[in-house]
Design a protein around this nucleic acid. Sequence first.
DNA 1: CAGTGAGCGAGCTTCCGCTTGACTT
Length: 693
Amino acid sequence: MKLIIVESPTKAKTIESFLKGGFKVVSSYGHVRDLPKSKLGIDVEKNFEPHYIVPVKSKKRVGELKKSAQKADQIILATDEDREGEAIAFHLTQVLTPEKKKISKSSPSKTPPRSAEKQESQISRFERIVFHEITPEAIERAIQNPREIDLNLVNAQQARRILDRLVGYGLSPFLWKKVAKRLSAGRVQSVALRLVVEREREIKNFKPEEYWLIDVVFNTEKNKKLETSLIKIDEETIGVGSIKNKKESDKTVDDLKKADFKILRITKKEIRRNSFPPFTTSTLQQTAFARLRFSSKQTMRIAQSLYEKGLITYMRTDSVNLSQQSLVGAQQWLKSNLGEKYALPSYRRFKNKSKNAQEAHEAIRPTLPDFSPKNLGGQARPEHQKLENAQEEKLYELIWRRFIASQMPPAIFDSTAVDINGKGKKEYLLRASGTVLKFDGFLKIWPSKFEEKEIPPIKESEKITLEEVIPSQHFTEPPARYNDASLIKKLEELGIGRPSTYSPIISVIQERNYVIRNEQKRFEPTEIGEKVNDVLVEHFPKVVDVQFTAQMEEELDEIAQGKLKWQKVIGEFYVPFEKNLKEKYKTVEHQAPMTETTDEKCEKCGKPMVFRYSRFGKFLGCSGFPECRNIKPLTDQNAHKNSSQKSFGKCPKCGQGEIVRRRTKKGRFFYGCSKYPDCDYASWTKPIATDNS
DNA sequence: CAGTGAGCGAGCTTCCGCTTGACTT
C-alpha cells in the first residue's frame, strides 16, 4: 500500500476518489512542525539553528500519520508546489522517520555526519510529487514522475520563518518594556499598521484646494442640446489649479458668453472593454467586500464551505491560471446557453502580475460551470452540495460569474467626441463626449458600472448657438481611509502577506487595538496604534519599510535557487538588527506620558488625575498610585485634547451622565453612560433622547 | 456591553504561514 499525504482533507478525499486501489490518501492539515510558541527556538550562536517541535495541536494528527506510515510501503508527499508546501513535505519526512534513522537536522548528534548516499537510503521510502490541477490524469502523471525534496526551497522557507520569528519575538518584548504589555510587532502587521497610520495623517494634513469647472450647453440646428465641458484655455488643460476661484471663473464665463464657436472635428471610435481575470484570494476578498459588503473573514469562511462542498476550487491562491478542462467547460456553457457570439474563438488564459505569486494552485473558479447560480437556471445539485444560505448563494454566484465572464468577449462601446473651438479674448477648446453600448459582451454576465451618454446627431459643418454657461465649484478631496478591500489590495501590491494571511492580518491589528473599523467599515488608527507605529518607524525604520519584504523575497529566491546560503542571509539581517535593538533598550524612554496631568480631581483622595497608557490607549489614573488605585476611562469631558468623540445626549437611565460612544474589547461600538460604573446603562444603538422611554 | 499603571520577580505575552475543528454555555 502506498500512502499519499496532502495538506487539506478535502483535497485528500478528491484524490482518493480518482485512484483505483493500493493507495491511501491522508492529510497533514498544514504544517506539522514549527518553532515553539513559548520561546525563541533559534540558537543564534550556532548559526541560527532552529529548534522545531510538533505543536500540541498537531500531536494527534502526527500520531495518526505515523500509524498510517507504518503500514505503508511507500510514502508519497503531494503537498503544494511552493516554499511552504516543500517545507511541509520536508518536516513530514522528519516526523515520519523513526527516531534512530532521522537525518541530523535540528538535533546535533555526536555521531559523525552521514554520507549523502546514506541519507538518501534513509528517506528512500519517501517520494515527492507535484501537480497543478486535481484531475485523474494529472495525478497519474505526477505519480509516474516523482522527484526528491528540494532542500534549497526548504531552506528558503526556513529563512523566511526564522527571520519572521527573530523580528516578531525581538520587537514585541521591546514594546512591552517601552510602551505597554501584550503589544506586538512583526514584518507584516507593522507595515499594515503603518499604512493605516500614514493614510490617517495624509487625511489630517490635507488642505482642500478649490477649483472650478465650466460646462457649456449649445443648441444644434435641429434644436437639440449639446452638452460640452471646457477642456483647454489657450494651451492649458483645465484641471485642479487652472481656475482657482469664483473671480477667475466669472471672468472666463463672461468671455465664453461673448465668444464665437465653431465645430472643429467629430471623432468616432470604438472602445473595447475586456473582462477581468478570474478570482484570486485577494481579488475575491476585494470584490466580495465591494459588492456584497462581506468582510475578508466572512468571505473566507463562506468560501471554505463552498470548497468543502466541492463547488469551487481552492480558495487560498494567488494564481489566475485556469485548467484546460475548465476552459472547455466555460466555452460549452456559453455556446449552449448564450450562443456563439458570447463565446470566444479561443480560450483566454491569464498571466500573474504579482512577482511574488507562487502559483501552487489554480484561480478560484466553480468546479463545474454547469452548476450555474439559481437565477441563471442552474442544474439541480446533489444533496451534499446544496447551498445553505443566501450568503453562500451570493458568493458562489460572484465566483461563477467572474469565471464565466473571463471567457467572454469584450464589451464594445461607440464613442463620439465633438471638439468645439471658441474664440473670445482667449481661445477655448470644448468637448462633448458620448458613449453608447453597442455589444454587451461579458457585461451580460458580469454587470459593471459604466457611463452611457448619448449626444444628438451632429455634422461638422453644423452651426451651433450658445445656450448656457454653467460654472461649478469643486474642492480636491483627501484620500479615503483603508477598508478591508483596499488594505488587502495595497498589501498584495507590496508583496506583503499571503493569501492565507490577508484576513488574519486585518484581524490582528484590530485585536491589538491598533486600529478600529469605523461605522463606514474603514480603518482608523487608535492612539496606541499611532504610538506603536511611531516608535517602530523612528527606531526600527528598516523593519517597517515597505521595501523590506521585497528585498527579503529576492534573497529567498536566491536561496531557493541554491545561490545563497540561508544562514548568510539571516546573519546579515540579524547582526545589525540585534545591535540596534540592544542600543534602543538603553536609549529609548518609556513612552507613557507619566507627567501629563489634568484638571480632574480624584474623588477618592482629591489628588489630581493624570494620563496613563495601557495597551488599550490612554486612560485616567490617580496620581496617588499605588496608594490610591482609582482609575477612570477617558471620556469626552476629560479628554479635551482629542475630542473626536461627542456626547449623544443625557443618559436615559440616571439622567446625570452623558451618553458617550465606547468600544468593547473586540472593537465593536456601543453607547454607554459616562457615569459608569455608578450607572451601568449601555446600548448597542444610539439612544433616542426622550424622557418617556 | 465598560478593559487598563510601577516595582520586587514569578510566568506570561509576541511572529508568519500552512490547515481545520469543537473543552462549552
